[in-house]
Amino acid sequence: MTPRDAADDRPGDPSGGSRWSDLDRPPLNAAALRRALVREGQLWSGVEVVQSTGSTNSDLVSRAAEGRATEGAVLVAEEQTAGRGRLDRRWTAPPRSGLFFSVLLTPGEVPIARWGWLPLLTGVAVATGLARAAGVDTSLKWPNDLLVTVGGEERKAGGILAERAGDDGVVIGVGVNVTLREAELPVPQAGSLALAGAVSTDRDTLLRAVLRSLSDWYGRWRAAGGDPATSGLQETYAAGCATLGRQVRAELPGDRSVVGEALAVDGDGRLVIATREGVREPVGAGDIVHLRPA
């Protein structure tokens, strides 16, 4: 695990030019982030910024297991060398080109059966925070991809990964491409906030907005006992979900697939697909492909 660089709290480090090798991508100001986010009685209990690590999710899961992290811990990396997405896909990006962070949540009073809403809740919070701070229209691809429009084309700019941390915790990782240029995209289907015309790509501002939005939605959801309808989460997710109303192919475990129209997200967070045979099939896990109209 990479220890936090002491230079994180300073605006610049004249002895370490690598941190300023790309002037369009200044380092995060860890001290300012802590001042803005860590408050008595609020969710976020600590914000740590590391220069580089394999995976913030793996690090925070380990810390939670060892009793070295409490609810509200936020771990941010300027660079991830082994970032992971859903289905163990790899997430790579140049240093300081995006937001790469994980948070630890322990929603003990919420029934475990409703914890599956946490990645969807995070998607709503991230999309809301980025829309406000970056001025970019965002949408969600079920279950937890963040989409933006670049040149009239729908592209993935971010993703979310939730992992259990012991018996009472969940670590949620978020990766968002902020300033990636066209030549830096890992695949042609990827995008970034900058390519989508963001009015601001200041990562300090964006991270504060996302974490405040996440705290707000998490508080509503917990206050409602995790009920997605009462908290407004289910309705808000559906309103911002680009998958609903589309023809999709769900690639399921066991080499099975389902093709049909995505109708709704049910009370368990599953995607309900109306198949060509007239069957409504709820999908709880799988890879969703948006199909182009015939």
Score class of each variant (00 low, 15 high):
S62L: 07
E184L: 01
I160W: 01
R212C: 13
V38I: 01
D227H: 06
G225R: 06
S15E: 14
L263M: 15
P107G: 06
V279C: 06
A134I: 10
V283S: 09
V103H: 03
G123S: 00
L37V: 03
T236G: 13
N29I: 02
G260Q: 05
G67Q: 11
L23D: 11
P107I: 09
G158S: 04
V289I: 14
D88A: 12
T70P: 02
N29K: 09
A31F: 00
E109N: 13
V176R: 02
A32S: 06
G159H: 01
K141F: 09
R276V: 04
L121F: 12
L193R: 10
V150Q: 09
S62G: 15
V47S: 02
A190F: 09
A262N: 13
G152N: 06
T236R: 15
D13Q: 03
P293T: 08
R86V: 08
V50F: 00
P11A: 01
L211M: 12
E251W: 05
S139I: 03
R181D: 00
P186F: 05
E251H: 09
G54N: 03
R89E: 00
V178Q: 02
E153R: 15
L60Q: 05
T92F: 12
G226N: 07
V61Y: 05
I160V: 12
R35N: 14
L120R: 10
I288F: 05
L271G: 02
S45A: 14
A125Y: 03
S62E: 15
L161T: 03
E235G: 13
G169R: 04
G116L: 08
L185M: 04
G116Y: 01
T56W: 01
S18N: 10
W20E: 13
Q80C: 09
L121C: 06
A209G: 11
A242D: 09
S45W: 07
